[in-house]
Amino acid sequence: MMDKFTTLTAVAAPLPLANVDTDKIIPARFLKTIKRTGLGVHLFDTLRYDADGKERAEFVLNSEPYRHAEILVAFENFGCGSSREHAPWALLDFGIRCVIAPDFADIFHSNCFKNGILPVRLPHEVCAMLMDDARMGGNARLTVDLARQVVVRPNGEEIPFEIDPFRRHLLLEGLDDIGQTLQHAQNIDGYEARRATEQSWLPAITAQA
């Protein structure tokens, strides 16, 4: 179900902001959907459009070549705030497959992996440098190579990054977590049986209590 992530060579958009919260990525009023798709048009809605719904010319994703960006470079604490998976869904629906930042809020970070988006942590100075690369536009694409764990700058310089090996494996193979966990179903059964004895005081939730 999830797309694999192997190597991506693409236009990168610079977003030189820290603490980009999930309300900024996708405001709450767009969470009334029962689908995962279609949110890209509202990605960064308040930064991207004015009160009349017209594009703000100064916002990076409203200009070429960044309308086609597949990589986003930002500053600290990207994705802070709510747990809404609509944030990575909106990024993905727009076409973003990789976000590079000094660090990420925990839930957003985890949500990215579940959707085939690669969050790459690199130091602030490196992000600033990659933003300068990104500002050069369409002729200065970045390459993100997950198998080799490097970001390749337009000048060919390779910047290594760290990533959790288990999550890397799932992304490279496009594997979904549930399938992985269900391979351990017997152990879950065993745990449940043991707990039912040890914590027999824990009540079941029924429709009425």
Binding site: S83, I107, N111, K114, F166, T181, L182, I188
Partner: peptide, 21 residues
């Protein structure tokens, strides 16, 4: 007690567990 994304909601519904460090 902690918040999770929708993929993890599905994971808990299906397995009553989460993959966590």
């Amino acid at each position: 007690a902690f918040g999770i994304g929708t993929s993890e909601v599905e994971h808990v519904l299906a397995t009553q567990t989460l993959l966590q460090k």
